[in-house]
Design a protein around this nucleic acid. Structure first.
Lengths: 226, 226
DNA sequence: TGGCTGTTTCGTACATAGTACGCTACGGTT
DNA sequence: AACCGTAGCGTACTATGTACGAAACAGCCA
């Protein structure tokens, strides 16, 4: 049978670097970063492992690529605006991106070659602080502090065995009962009178810290005379 | 149960769970967490892979174990003392432990079963805050904030391609030159006028943030009426 | 039309990972 | 002497990243 066209004409939408990275990100979201293997990714795309290597050099490049994709989802702060509002919005934006893609925070540790979206993000954030009158020193301090807090919060959130309001109870209750013998009174107290209260959501703690940090930065900015 | 024999005339000091975990920690420190494999660990201990499985159930238990070992290195804060001094010291202690064992912060994300040293550490910290008059809510806020900052800082420190004072220059200079075309002016500014200054050490940023956070907590503690 | 050439895809193979299974070696107990 | 429990190990299975080179296809020129 003389087929003038290829076997699978439109079954598979054609490979490309963008599609590889996009599917890799989806797969990591659905099944976790550990389940993102060359083979599983190829299968998810309806192709074979070695085909992917025409679009990415190796798996590390895939990991770098999806981290940059995550940054590309974060809208950039605007230099020249109210710095505090911009940093508040950026804080929430970064956190929600890291919540959507919990594996990303774990990759931050190992990836050292930032992509273009990551660079743009850093540039816009630094420019916003500088434009608001932060000195170079204070800008560096502020950025290290803000990102440490945001990343660290995301890290802790990713490490929690529960997710969202009220879901803590099922996990925590048996543990608390185990500990109620008295070895860890303060932990039990916090658990029973805070974590186990209806409506509790660890994510709500985020705003307290972000606010406190922005307050402190505002004081230092004013104290330095602008 | 028979704990009688003490001297095996062998050249190897006898296996034990403690020795396995201790060597695993050393190996992770020396060669990185990726190089910590069952095989490499067995070789480092002068034994064979499967022998280790008499002392640990699986590799996850090894990872949990060495994370708890890291916590066991951190001296506990004392409930009843000056809370600010205690939290300052604890902050430095945790950070230096995570600096000694940079792989540990990456494990925090995946490990969800804390060991005894980890639990003792959390308990002592919470008790210190409570004893200083922090309400349950404020204690929870404070702890989430402090640990987010400390872990996040350690995460960023671990991700840096350089380490210690002045070492940033060699890595950063070529990058800065690449960017000096003008795409990222704020990053270049910060780099040339702050990071590349002699004596720069990212680790020095830590105190600024910790101080700011403790200031903010003190204000909130006072504002709530003690 | 036929053939050349570069791009894309894939089949096979290898090194290294965790670990299940079952055997040996040995020191006590009965 | 017979037995047994513990520590240690040899082998083998499965999953991983990826090197190597062949196959399939597209577009071009004769």
């Amino acid at each position: 049978m003389p087929t003038t066209t290829k076997d699978h004409p439109s079954k598979r939408p054609q490979l490309s670097r963008e599609r590889v990275l996009g599917c890799a990100l989806d797969l990591a979201d659905e099944s976790g970063i550990a389940a993102l293997t060359i083979r599983s990714l190829a299968e998810a795309m309806g192709t074979k492992p070695m085909s992917l290597y025409h679009y990415v050099a190796n798996k590390d490049e895939i990991l770098d690529g999806i981290v940059d994709l995550v940054f590309s989802e974060i809208s950039l702060p605007s230099p020249g605006g109210d710095w505090r509002a911009e940093m508040l919005r950026r804080g929430h934006a970064v956190r929600s991106a890291l919540k959507r893609h919990p594996w990303a925070v774990g990759l931050l540790e190992s990836r050292t070659s930032p992509g273009p979206a990551t660079l743009r993000h850093h540039e816009a954030t630094l420019a916003t602080l500088r434009a608001a009158g932060f000195s170079i020193q204070l800008t560096a301090h502020a950025y290290a502090l803000l990102d440490s807090y945001i990343y660290g919060f995301a890290l802790q959130e990713a490490a929690l065995p529960f997710d969202g309001p009220d879901t803590a109870a099922e996990i925590t209750t048996p543990i608390v009962q185990l500990f109620s013998t008295g070895q860890y009174p303060s932990m039990v107290e916090i658990a029973t009178e805070h974590v186990l209260k209806p409506g509790y959501d660890f994510g709500d703690e985020f705003d307290f810290g972000l606010d406190l940090i922005l307050d402190g930065l505002a004081q230092r900015l004013a104290g330095a005379g602008g």
